[in-house]
Write a protein that binds this DNA or RNA. Structure first.
Lengths: 340, 340
DNA sequence: TATCTATATGTTATCGTTAATTTGTGCAAA
DNA sequence: TTTGCACAAATTAACGATAACATATAGATA
């Protein structure tokens, strides 16, 4: 009774053709009469045939699978991008496989290893901590890949990311224009390029506006991003030697706003706050957070397209796409309170 | 220059053994001298060998890959479970592949198809909308699988879930004991067993306490879970003909609390709220939400173990594991306000 | 009629690995 | 010396699909 899976051979036997013909019928290969193709496809369906990806990709060298390697599934920004890329790839008849390193950076190499071992056709990679040897690992193994969200120093590779520097700049100009002069900057992972660029752009804006850099207090984000650390938020945001907060990402801003409000601080009346990501869909706060807008749909579709092009032509020169950002003012920024 | 990947044959050639011997050395198969094994393993490492899963699993019939099929990556409860299962599987030297159906139920069949096509050894399946034919699809294809979180009517299969009925009951008893008599119940997907059971348990508690069922206003959750629908929360929570809210899951409770507070409703002074999931790590609210505690670590580890046992012995009778739940009182419930 | 060509199919070899089987070697027991 | 056996390795044959090549047939052309 333990019938193993239906194979091409079974179908061939059932309808009197050779396995090869069946294979071609199912792949819509040329040189087949309409009648034969129809009969074979119908038989295959009737028999519940499920093609064996292993065998197919072993022989053909292509698997129509793409791996995405991401740091943390809890981060809504990633989830969102992954969902969109999944949809875009499905449209091209690819299957996306998600590999998550669960904040454990040392897993990256294992995951890339897994992906190569699985013969995926390409890898979508979100670098996290600025290391490069993982990238070299993919290059050494001739695995087509695309970097997302963050650049890596000294790495020449396909890359799609937002213009984080410009984003930081916009945030700075916006707050400065409102009259703010002293800031709290909640930063992200120190070496990540998005972090560096956002901060860099922000400081450039301050320079442009003649505001000294000493007026910015920079707080390491890990202290806030770590869930347990929510308890310590109070220690970070007080004393309030600032009138505006710049948060590295929305999910950092949420609990901070919550803590401030508990302490009787009104937003934006007492303190302005601006952030990055613009996770509008899941924003649990009111008024909605003023945030730097990054077009997820754009990144996802462009990224998928670039990776597929890279797969089609490995000799293509590396391309670096930087997407423009916009500020999305939803009401958590206002002019600072006049000094009492 | 375009050297394809290193294969067993290449290693065999390099160190003067047959491909089979190399294979056995790398798999730690018996009947090999220590010296040979050592030499081969070292050579393989030096040459940067990455085994070809496709070939290996085609031949051996086992892939050491497990697929998890989940509805929505944005749901933190799932992300959390997936991360834990991933870790548990990695310990057993399995690779977990995440397939997400992005709230589009019709994708389930395609994803199962993909997983079978990939020859995964087993599937971890989170049923969403109560359909059964997907399960039959796996059974028909002799694919070992495990149902998570929700039962399906008339399906005899391995299942791990929380005692949702008991959870609902605990919530009801807790609120009733505090003195609440009128309730708003924010429900989830209508046909999902967790939804049905939680509501069922809650109503049973009311019965036990002699509170008539008419005192519960049930609001369909879709109206809240949908992000865009946040705008409409106001219409659902008013008029306040209740003193306590039961929310189907934490992420539904968050925006509701936010809206209530904006309207000047204090929690728990004016309204108590209790929920399910207990997503303590990412809870953006203060005080932390009182929630029904479900042990993610338990579910994940037990689930992985059960699936692996099922893979090892397909003839095992189906097992149904129901894990106990506890109430985690963190401060969003209190006695109701005395009538004015 | 003989030859050519386009079309529709079958045959065979192969992808990289592993299972099954076979071969070879050295040493102990008869 | 012969036999037997344990061990170490090589050889061969799959797994299921597909690419490359070979074959067969029908109709068109000379």
């Amino acid at each position: 009774m333990s019938s193993p899976r239906v194979t091409l051979k079974d179908i061939a036997l059932a309808c009197g053709y050779s396995a090869n013909t069946v294979s071609r019928a199912l792949r819509n290969d040329a040189m087949l009469s309409e009648a034969t193709r129809g009969l074979i496809r119908e038989t295959a369906k009737k028999m519940g045939y499920i093609p064996n990806t292993m065998a197919s990709s072993l022989r053909s060298g292509r698997s129509r699978m793409i791996a995405v390697i991401v740091n943390d599934l809890h981060n809504q920004h990633y989830c969102d991008l992954i969902n969109r890329m999944d949809a875009a790839l499905r449209r091209e008849n690819y299957t996306l496989m998600i590999f998550c390193m669960q904040l454990d950076d040392s897993l990256a190499e294992k995951l890339i290893h897994s992906a190569i071992s699985l013969s995926v056709d390409g890898i979508l990679y979100f670098p996290c901590f600025g290391q490069q040897h993982y990238v070299e690992y993919m290059i050494d193994n001739r695995m087509p890949f695309l970097l997302l969200d963050r650049r890596l120093d000294n790495v020449e590779a396909d890359l799609v990311r937002n213009d984080d520097e410009q984003g930081g700049y916009l945030a700075g100009r916006h707050l400065a224009a409102l009259g703010h002069r002293r800031f709290l900057f909640l930063s992200g992972v120190e070496k990540s390029s998005s972090q560096v660029d956002r901060l860099g752009g922000f400081l450039r804006a301050l320079d442009d506006c003649g505001i000294p850099r000493e007026n910015v207090r920079i707080v390491p984000g890990a202290a806030v991003e770590d869930a347990v650390a929510h308890e310590r938020i109070g220690e970070l945001v007080f004393p309030m030697d600032y009138s505006a907060i710049v948060s590295f990402r929305d999910e950092v801003a949420y609990p901070v706003m919550q803590v401030l409000r508990e302490c009787g601080v009104s937003i934006p009346e007492d303190v302005s706050i601006i952030s990055f990501d613009n996770l509008r869909g899941t924003d649990p706060t009111r008024p909605f957070l003023t945030s730097i807008y990054t077009d997820g749909q754009n990144i996802a579709e462009l990224g998928v397209r670039m990776l597929l092009e890279r797969i089609a032509d490995p000799e293509l020169p590396p391309r670096n796409m930087i997407l423009p950002v916009r500020i999305f003012d939803q009401g958590t920024t206002a002019p600072p309170k006049p000094a009492p």
